[in-house]
Amino acid sequence: MVHMSERVESDVVIERNVRERLSKVIDPELGKSITELGMIVGIEAVPRDIIDAGKPVVDVTVRVELTVAGCPLTQQIIDAINDAVTSYPAATLVPHIAVGSMSEQKLTQLVDDLKEARRRNPFNKPGIKTKIFAIASGKGGVGKSSVSANLAATFAALGYDTAAIDADIYGFSLPTLLGAHGQPTNLNGMLMPVTAWGVKTMSIGMFAGADRAILWRGPRLHRSLEQFLSDVWWGEPDVLVIDLAPGTGDMALAVAQTLPNAELVVVTTPQPSASDVAVRSGLVALQVPMKVRGVIENMSWYDHHGERLTIFGEGGGARVSQQLTRALRYDVPLLMQIPLETELRQSGEAGHPVVLDEHGKLADHDLAHRFEQLARTLMQ
């Protein structure tokens, strides 16, 4: 016979162990444990008087408070809690999950604590592990944003915690290319980036009125970047991809000043009219503490019935690489050449990065393999 004191002690042990398991459940937006965030407000274990497969059966009620009512990731969190509870080895636990939302006071305190932990720009503090790649071009129309979107999607598919900022304020396109059509969740002034294909994304194009003409100048552009960095909860991603505006204007300088640890990747096409201008975007590194990591040549050739057609000429990427290597006095390699493929455009317009299959895994074709090699090279 089990004494009542032993049974109560057993219940307490189960509740403690369940809490320990729930501490491994991570909020998908905030990137922190749901217990650390104060989302678990109660756990109660009530044993039944039956045995199942040699193990006692216990009803476990878990009371959860989400950060906002109607959170779009509610079911994902509930499923993770169910998995954590039912994986308990010593007993058969039957979960009952009661879902509520935090009070305004509790949410305010949580946001204040998160902001205090961040202390403004989280990507420019000592010891930060995030590798930052700013994708630049000398002119528009060379496929810079397409490269940014597919590179970010490749990083995410390889298992890296990936973030992407659309810093092309006038010509934002990352939301379309990544299929990130939602709006950021606002937690008392702190924004949650929209996640698509595993990439946490922020763009001015996600906000109401962004379809109107934007006439911002230097200070306001700089402030928009600071807000994307400090007013958005990114967690601590492994990699951040920044899609810059073409040229060497205010936003490029703002990124260099705000994120001196960023590495520049220059995108060009083969013809001299593009490659000559692309060199200028790399020469920004002579004026600011930024390293140019390498060059990507887009639209290098077109395969037509087995014949390789160089529609836009040849050698643009190599010319940019050579000129930047001479000017900067360190090796600026040609990292990748990308063929001209209609699938790249079509998939981008559909919000599906061409490097991914329908399940979000890296696709098995030449272009995906090229981006995978590029991502691995950049992360070395």
Rank of each mutant, 00 (worst) to 15 (best):
L22I: 03
P272F: 06
V284S: 07
L335Q: 12
T325V: 12
G235D: 08
I97H: 08
S275A: 13
K139G: 11
V99F: 08
G249Y: 06
A245D: 04
L356A: 10
V18Y: 12
I97N: 04
L334R: 11
K129W: 04
K125P: 00
G140Y: 03
R212N: 11
E9R: 15
V355C: 05
V13K: 15
E263C: 02
L221C: 08
G315V: 11
D250A: 05
L229D: 02
F371K: 01
Y330A: 10
T108P: 00
V266K: 07
Q271P: 13
C71Y: 12
S23W: 00
E36T: 10
S103G: 13
G198T: 03
D166V: 06
A262T: 02
V194E: 11
K106D: 08
S230A: 15
D357W: 13
G140D: 01
A285K: 14
D49C: 08
T195H: 10
P272C: 01
V2R: 15
T377Q: 14
A274C: 13
Q337E: 14
I40K: 13
V241T: 03
R120V: 00
S281P: 11
E20F: 10
L264E: 04
D331H: 13
V354L: 09
A252W: 02
K200S: 09
E20P: 02
Y88E: 00
G138S: 03
E44W: 05
M102I: 03
R370G: 12
I204A: 09
V60G: 07
L283K: 15
L240H: 02
L174Y: 08
Q76M: 13
F371A: 01
V8G: 05
V58D: 02
S10H: 12
